[in-house]
Design a binder for these strands. Structure first.
Length: 411
RNA sequence: GCGCCUGUCGUCAAGCGGUUAAGACCUCGGAUUGUGGUUCCGAUAUGCAUGGGUUCGAAUCCCAUCAGGCGCCCCA
């Protein structure tokens, strides 16, 4: 037997029985984001590798080990691992800084990361996300978070936890990093391998380590003192406290998590995640924050921005599978020509109609009809002769023989 | 990239060294030549992820590869 070809590791088919859920995610996204004045943007699935190296940051895991990069005509191209860099590129390239701020954009689509697949993590996955450009005020941060919660509510997801934190600006963060490194230096040799790595790469992440011996080290008073200190500068602190008060006023429940640090380099000040307890270890459905220097770093005008992305597969696994919709009618007939005629006629008027194309036995056709449709439209010899059709309600077994015009009032 | 666990029909599975590889659902056919959803019969794995090895004998034991699950890292 010829060998079959399988899907690539970390990718999967979205089968017909699952696709209805995706429609729900997409329709609710369009409706919710439109309410807030967002417009959809669709950017290419691959971009210049440099965009991600400069945009996402070349010290990040995403850029260092997770990108699908290939060469074509002497160019280095990469399948997008996330879409913020692409949207920013488009914002700059299309002169959107000339539009009156805020510029509000949303997107959905596949992203690619070369990672070890597990639940809630695949190599090709889908994100829906939003980006708002041009507003420095924390009202923007608040609105974006509120919209995320609103969207999740529209999907029936009410009990998710919103966590927020402030990373400060590059300047105050640098100071904190240095203090942290200084106080941890004597303990460096006692840290786990991962933490030794993080010490150089991203000291903020150290605090989140799950290894017991590391946790014990962090408990030491002189280290706790640094961790607990409010390292962010006055301006950043004000931004953060305004955000909190906006959220309070809008009755958005959240917790401040000082250990919340996002792995993408472009974030500053506000970062947030929305988590679920039903997702295993990949428990964040939504992640985002402010990235005030990204537009400038990619060659645009200095433009503040804030946004988030949600993993659609993760959202999906939290939703209950909707029942598949039944057809309006299934035509039962041994005359394919008449069945086809009636089917086309009704379909043109917007009805969902199917009929048997292989001329199966009457009982088989009716059995099929009962499974997939609300009504059986029986078009036998007698009906054809009389120019009528017998309509059977498959839930109640009621059956009437009617003219084709009368049919519309029943369906 | 690392650690632990798993892999039997389209799906869910029983089997744990010698069986004709259970069973259920789905699908298809029949009982039922124009009346379904109930019922009853029947069909459907020369095969146990793939490749090696151990053994008189392997779905069952061992090794490798591939794939999946969980955790770490990281992230949506």
């Amino acid at each position: 037997m010829t060998k079959i070809i399988n899907v690539i590791k970390g990718t999967h088919d979205i089968l017909p029985q699952e696709v209805e859920q995706w429609h729900i995610l997409e329709e609710n996204a369009l409706n919710t984001f439109t309410k807030y004045g967002y417009k959809e943007i669709r950017t290419p699935i691959f971009e210049a590798t440099e965009l991600f190296a400069r945009g996402v940051g070349d010290t990040t895991d995403i850029v260092n080990k997770e990108m699908y990069t290939f060469e074509k005509s002497d160019r280095s191209l990469t399948l997008r691992p996330e879409n913020t860099a692409g949207v920013v590129r488009s914002y700059i390239e299309n002169g959107m800084s000339r539009l009156s701020p805020p510029v509000k954009l949303w997107y959905k689509g596949p992203m690619f990361r070369y990672e070890r697949p597990q639940k809630g993590r695949q190599r090709q996955f889908h994100q829906v996300g939003v980006e708002m450009f041009g507003v420095k005020d924390p009202a923007a941060d608040a609105e974006v978070i509120i919209m995320a919660v609103d969207y999740l509510k529209s999907l029936g997801l009410n009990d998710l936890e919103v966590e927020i934190n402030s990373l400060g600006c590059p300047k105050c963060r640098e100071e904190f990093k240095n203090n942290l490194k200084k106080v941890l230096k004597p303990e460096f040799e006692n840290l786990c391998e991962d933490c030794k790595n993080r010490y150089e790469k991203n000291p903020l992440r150290l605090l989140d380590c799950k290894v017991e011996s590391c946790k014990a080290i962090f408990e030491k008073p002189e280290i706790q003192k640094v961790i607990q200190s409010d390292f962010i500068c006055e301006e950043c602190a004000e931004h953060f406290s305004k955000l909190k008060s906006y959220l309070d006023k809008m009755n958005i429940k959240y917790t401040v998590n000082k250990l919340l640090v996002r792995g993408l380099d472009y974030y500053n000040r506000t970062v947030f995640e929305i988590k679920s307890n039903n997702l295993g270890s990949q428990n964040a459905v939504c992640g985002g924050g402010r990235y005030d220097s990204l537009v400038k770093n990619l060659g645009g005008e200095d433009t503040p921005a804030v946004g988030w992305a949600m993993g659609m597969e993760r959202l999906n696994s939290l939703l209950t599978i909707p029942e598949t919709k039944k057809l309006n009618g299934y035509i039962v007939s041994n005359s394919p020509q008449d069945a086809l005629e009636l089917a086309c006629e009704l379909r043109n008027e917007g009805y969902n109609i199917e009929f048997d194309l292989s001329n199966k036995k009457f009982t088989k056709q009716l059995e099929k009809a009962s499974k997939v449709a609300d009504f059986a439209l029986i078009l036998g010899e007698d009906e054809i002769k009389a120019g009528k059709v017998s309509v059977k309600n498959l839930a109640t077994s009621e059956q009437k023989t009617v003219s084709r015009q009368e049919l519309r009032s029943i369906l």
